[in-house]
Computed example of a mutant assay.
Amino acid sequence: MSGLGRWAGNRRQLGEILGELIEPSTRCALLGFPYYANVGDSAIWLGARALLAELGAEVVYTADHHDFCPATLAKRLPSGTILLTGGGNLGDLWPSHQRMRERVIGAFPRHRIIQLPQSVHFGDPAGLERARAVFDAHPDLILLLRDEPSLRTARRAFRAPSALAPDCAFGMTGLPRLGQPERRILWLRRGDHESAAPGEPPPDAEVHRTDWTAQEGADASWTAETQTVRRRIEKASAEVGGKAGDRAAAELADAQDRHAELQLQRGCRLLGSASAVVTDRLHGHLLSLLLGLPHVVVDDRHGKISGYWHTWGHDRHRSVARRAPDAEEALRTAAALLTDPATPRPARSR
């Protein structure tokens, strides 16, 4: 695993913010495990887990948004702090995540609830009104937002205290080392409704187009271990509310962490398969930054990337990261980065 020393300030800031909100040895729950192929959400999960471990918080219940059970959470955590994982799903872009969030906040008014750093987008006024009614009714809800536009939205919309915080991926303690590149440029493009649909660039043999969800970066051993880990998750999830609750909860969290590690491993292998990256995914950008990979970003439909970029001053990383208005310009910029002798090159294993 490679060090993340150059990003120690982001990690320290995250730790200080959470340290002010969570007392040492606090019993807590962490909800919203990413039981799917989004590598960025796995990085967020691993960063949060690492930060909570360093704070000495005792995580007694974890769940994804499908398997969450209010009765089991109440049994596992009669009092304490509930943390909702960070990401880009606060709002109506991803309804199942928002439904779980509102369900938790509405069902647990006596617990402190901390929303870990999120981006916010509401396109439907009715959805915003429903969220406001739920959020404003909770007496101890705290919202962390990862970009200035989201912070402004939250402060206009909700009564809950809110603060700016870096993305939880910066809480990770290390990343897999990169192997040797197999191609010149990787075009990691969203295939969902958050894509700005900038148009496909002309065919180019030097450019490989894919997305996290294509499951590239996996090999036979990765697939076999992932299947084993998924069986562990399913078994422990079914047992966590029963007599073996403590054992099952620990096994579930351990298996979830390993699932996230495997997704991160696959994602870093995919990013590292190229000499440069073009992407409209926020964590395509953030992981490329952390890995030191030359890359160019094209904004998503709702400005999530540009909001984060401007909030945290990513213009100062122009030696390795650039922005472009569309895919064609991004690919030209990526090619120029690769021919510029001033462009830093990431450490790679041989």
Rank of each mutant, 00 (worst) to 15 (best):
T213S: 15
F122S: 10
P344G: 09
H314R: 11
L262N: 09
S25M: 07
I82V: 13
V229L: 10
S275R: 14
Q13F: 10
L145C: 12
G47P: 01
R190G: 07
R348F: 04
E58H: 12
A48T: 07
P166Q: 14
V39C: 07
D340C: 07
G171W: 13
V207W: 05
A220P: 00
L175K: 08
G272T: 02
Y308I: 08
A160S: 14
G3Q: 10
P341H: 03
I185P: 00
E206C: 02
R76Y: 04
A133I: 04
D280M: 04
A253F: 06
R189S: 09
E148K: 05
F108Y: 02
R76A: 15
S162I: 08
M172F: 12
R130I: 03
A50F: 10
D136V: 10
R177P: 10
T228A: 14
P294F: 11
H317D: 12
E206T: 11
Q115W: 05
G32W: 02
A71K: 11
R12D: 13
R189L: 08
L293T: 02
P294G: 11
A53L: 08
I17K: 06
A71Y: 01
L141K: 07
H283V: 10
E206I: 01
A133W: 04
R177L: 09
N89P: 00
H295E: 05
A347E: 15
G191K: 10
I44E: 03
L46A: 06
S195V: 07
N10P: 00
M100D: 04
G32L: 03
Y308N: 06
A196R: 13
A197D: 15
M100N: 03
R110I: 01
E194P: 00
P181Q: 00
L46T: 02
D92N: 11
L290H: 08
R159A: 15
H97A: 13
F33K: 00
S237V: 01
R318A: 15
R99P: 00
R112Y: 13
S288C: 12
R99N: 05
G19M: 12
Q263S: 12
M1D: 05
L293R: 06
H259G: 04
D147N: 06
F170V: 01
R247W: 14
D280A: 05
S25P: 05
P203C: 13
A163H: 09
R155K: 13
D92A: 09
A71M: 10
H121R: 10
R156Y: 04
G191N: 14
G9K: 07
K304T: 13
A218C: 12
R132D: 03
R184K: 13
I114M: 09
D254G: 09
V297N: 01
L289A: 13
A74Y: 01
G272V: 07
A327C: 12
L52V: 02
A327T: 15
R231V: 03
W7I: 06
S96D: 15
P109D: 10
R189Q: 14
R112I: 03
P149D: 05
D64K: 00
A218W: 10
P166T: 14
G80V: 02
G19V: 05
Q256E: 15
S195M: 05
T153V: 12
A249T: 02
P202A: 15
L55M: 11
E20K: 11
P325G: 02
L51A: 13
W94S: 08
W45Q: 01
R316M: 07
P203H: 12
G56I: 11
S349V: 14
E329I: 13
R190Q: 09
V240N: 06
G40P: 02
G32Y: 02
P117T: 06
